[in-house]
Design a protein around this nucleic acid. Structure first.
Length: 423
RNA sequence: GGAGAGAUGGCAGAGUGGUCGAAUGCGACAGUCUCGAAAACUGCUGUACCUUCACGGGUACCGAGGGUUCGAAUCCCUCUCUCUCCGCCA
């Protein structure tokens, strides 16, 4: 949610910047300004009457104490009208606030100045490419063949137990998952991230805080009996730890990481995109989250970007980094870098990480502030990134590292897997 | 699932209808003292919104929502959450 004070001061700028996201904010901003105007005048009126009533009540109390009952009763006679006005103005204020809120949540975050204009993924800007594209030859098999060949991931079995998109990892496949998770967590720890094991069910307030609700409830699995959502990413619980908090400036930066399974309904997806590991309803991911002072947040974003790049480098996966265009960015983000690895047999780039700065968009929603000395509490900047999401990493590893002797495990993972080949 | 207790400022903990935004203690901050520190003493210490160029002024907030009253932290109703005991259970 954009800060109201910012919209009030710079309405034209908000409209201009949101046009980069192909979002026409004109009428919403106008509505917000009008409602805000109304809100202030209503509150000024209400406050004045309340002050009057408070004053009279105090006087009545004093008069009673002094035994001047008649004078007190005379004063009382006035209060009825005031109370009627108060009732009206209070309900009006409540209505106006709700209206304002309902408009405010419609505005996406304003993109950073560096965000390119554009509508589709084709308009994303490739800012970095690294690693050699593997030449696998004609006999190369896509990962969904390899997983069957070596019996390490069973998609049909998942269908039996749950449904499509819930694979069963077996034997060395399961061990590879565990190895990657531990490797990623260890790397995050080395980079200064504290490890969190959060709940994987979240309530509505948490969903609102990070921006999944109210818009994207269709993306999440919902447990109606208890009104809880399965997390689509660890970002939600790990960031919401700090909801409704004023943290001391000295405790910043806050850096946390966590492994969780993630659940996404992915309604409407089909075709080659969902083949094999390409898109799942349940998958594993290690997430990194930072809470920063505004002046340092873009430096932190670069730092996170470098962390993710380091992971891919150490796995010897060819990758590229995209600066997402306005049209491809998420609602809540101000700047997002996507990481894609090249999947040798599918011959396509697969997104494995998304690193974003949300500036104050999330912290305003969840009232996450920091306080520096005597200054007033200020909204912090929140950032997060996948480091990394497993399935497509596994897909690329399997495809790119296939040999006649089996699938070669990257050196850095061998201490974790305790085997060098899947065969 | 059954029974009971509770929810007050950063924390602990008073307060059961009127000057209570809230005693007291601790903590934090500032000052005195000191070469410096500790101790001691003194002062100060919430958040949001409205209003004002500013100084300042006003309003709301004692788990949440409603009610009674001229006036509610305090009385009434509803809800939520937490804790304790019992049962079940990884």
């Amino acid at each position: 949610m954009l800060e109201l004070s910012y919209i009030r001061r710079n309405p034209e700028e908000v409209i201009e910047r949101l046009s980069t996201k192909n979002f026409d904010a004109k009428s919403i901003v106008a509505d917000i300004l009008a409602i805000d105007e109304k809100r202030r005048s209503t509150q000024t009126n209400l406050d004045a009457i309340l002050a009057q009533l408070n004053k009279a009540s105090k006087e009545i109390g004093e008069l009673y104490k002094a035994g001047k009952k008649e004078e007190a009763d005379a004063l009382k006679a006035n209060t009825g009208k005031w109370k009627e006005d108060i009732t009206v103005l209070e309900s009006e204020t409540k209505k106006i606030d709700a209206e304002l809120q309902s408009k405010a949540v419609l505005l996406p975050n304003t993109p950073h100045a560096s965000v390119p204009k554009g509508k589709t993924p084709e308009d994303n800007e490739i800012v970095h490419t690294e690693g050699a594209i593997p030449e696998l030859g004609e006999s190369a098999q896509p990962h969904w063949e390899l997983t069957k060949k070596y019996d390490i991931i069973d998609f049909e079995l998942g269908v039996k137990i749950t449904g499509a998109g819930f694979p069963v990892y077996k034997g060395k496949g399961a061990k590879l998952q565990r190895a990657l998770i531990n490797f990623f967590l260890d790397k995050a720890f080395e980079a200064g991230y504290g490890e969190i094991q959060p709940p994987i069910l979240i309530n509505e307030d948490s969903g609102f805080g990070t921006g999944q609700l109210p818009d994207k409830e269709g993306q999440m699995y919902f447990v109606g009996e208890d009104k809880l959502y399965l997390i689509p990413t660890a970002e939600v619980p790990i960031t919401n730890i700090y909801r409704d908090m004023v943290v001391d400036a000295n405790s910043l930066p806050i850096k946390n990481c966590g492994y969780t399974p993630c659940f996404r309904r992915e309604a409407g997806s089909y075709g080659k995109d969902v083949r094999g590991l390409n898109r799942l309803h349940q998958f594993d991911k290690v997430e990194i989250v930072q809470i920063r002072m505004p002046e340092e947040s873009y430096q932190a974003l670069d730092e996170m970007r470098e962390h993710v790049a380091g992971l891919l480098r150490s796995l010897h996966l060819p990758f590229r980094v995209l600066r997402l265009c306005g049209g491809d960015m998420s609602f809540a983000s101000a700047l997002t870098y996507d990481f894609e690895v090249f999947s040798g047999a599918q011959k396509r780039w697969l997104e494995v990480s998304s690193v974003s700065n949300f500036e104050t968009f999330q912290s305003n929603r969840m009232k996450l502030r920091y306080k520096k000395d005597k200054d007033k509490p200020t909204f912090a900047h929140t950032l997060n990134g996948s480091a990394l999401a497993l399935p497509r990493i596994v897909a690329a590893l399997l495809e790119n590292n296939q040999t006649e002797n089996g699938i070669r495990i990257p050196e850095v993972l061998v201490p974790y897997t305790k085997f060098e080949y899947i065969n």
